[in-house]
Write a protein that binds this DNA or RNA. Structure first.
Ligand code: MN
Ligand code: MN
Ligand code: ZN
Ligand code: ZN
Lengths: 163, 163
DNA sequence: TGACAGTTGCAAATCGTTCGCATAAGCAAT
DNA sequence: ATTGCTTATGCGAACGATTTGCAACTGTCA
């Protein structure tokens, strides 16, 4: 049973507990949008999926599966790591999240609501900065076209050091 | 004991066997260059390293560790997979090979002698095409600079489909 | 030809991720 | 609400790629 109040919070009623968590309006809208995307594809909206989606909706970084699990457990301690992995894969397949595979360490995730961008990774601190270049995107398509290809998706990562 | 003839081949004498293999002039030169790079850094030129280097010098594709091992065993069946992994890491650390991490599957390798290029991966066939764009390289540096960074290295992969 | 430090093969360990299976729980129709 | 069908879950074991501990081996240089 899931109730949404009008005052920027999500109440979740489980058999023996009641959770309440403050979320921004935009995060709540984002959460609803992702739920709807799943529902539209006939996926079930489970307690664990809502917990995971709410974590992703709030994140403004690029957490790995373990970090998503850690945060999700603060919403619902019963969610298992296996379910986090399964859910992230489901969400990826439905175009709701993107999987990022930076050098070293496991996959990292971000929601797919923001417009396309690529990443700078600070090799010293691990900090991630987002950027977008229409010029580069256009050049990629041109180069592929010259070789007889269409770009399905691409990966552009700049491993950098503060100058 | 390692002998090089003048006629495009490498003879390798081991305790109980004599191998002979045809290699192109350029591959032999390439092999020597890589050996020298290791020697210059005080690394030992072992039988297994020469075998692996000769495989890499001849390769014009992007084999993974297992494929390097398979090819190396045809030169010297005693080389273990662990040594292949260790050697590839050593070569990477000495700037002699590059490690590529395309989506799905393990790391793949290529020698670092060719000028810098990026990769198109055919999502249907797995075929890899190399390309280079000075414009893109320049734009990457400009974007990083605007954000206060120097590019240490980067990854640009275009996952494409034949049009 | 030593002597020593670097290298190897082997098997076991690691790490991130996936899987099988029995149980739990969405969801739509009653 | 209750039912019934089907999907999702938690657990732990399995997985695949890569790394590592260790004892034996071998380049290298004096
Ligand atoms: Mn991002
Ligand atoms: Mn290449
Ligand atoms: Zn892009
Ligand atoms: Zn490049």
């Amino acid at each position: 049973m899931l109730l949404r109040t009008t005052c920027n919070s999500v109440l979740r009623v489980t058999s023996d507990r009641l959770y309440s968590r403050a979320m921004s309006n935009t995060a709540i809208k984002h959460l609803r949008d992702m739920e709807d995307a799943l529902r539209a594809d006939g996926m079930r909206i489970t307690r664990q999926r809502v917990a995971i989606l709410s974590v992703l909706a709030e994140a403004n970084d690029h957490p790995d599966a373990d970090e998503v699990h850690r945060r999700t457990k603060q919403v619902d301690p019963s969610v298992s790591l296996a379910t986090v992995y399964r859910t992230l894969s489901v969400l990826e397949n439905h175009g709701v999240v993107h999987r990022l595979t930076f050098e070293g360490g496991g996959a990292r995730f971000e929601t797919a609501d923001a417009p396309h961008h690529d990443h700078i990774i600070d090799v010293d601190t691990g900090a991630v900065v987002e950027f977008h270049s229409d010029k580069i995107e256009r050049l990629q398509a041109e180069i592929a076209a010259e070789l007889g290809y269409d770009v399905v998706h691409h990966k552009l990562e700049l491993y950098c050091r503060k100058r």
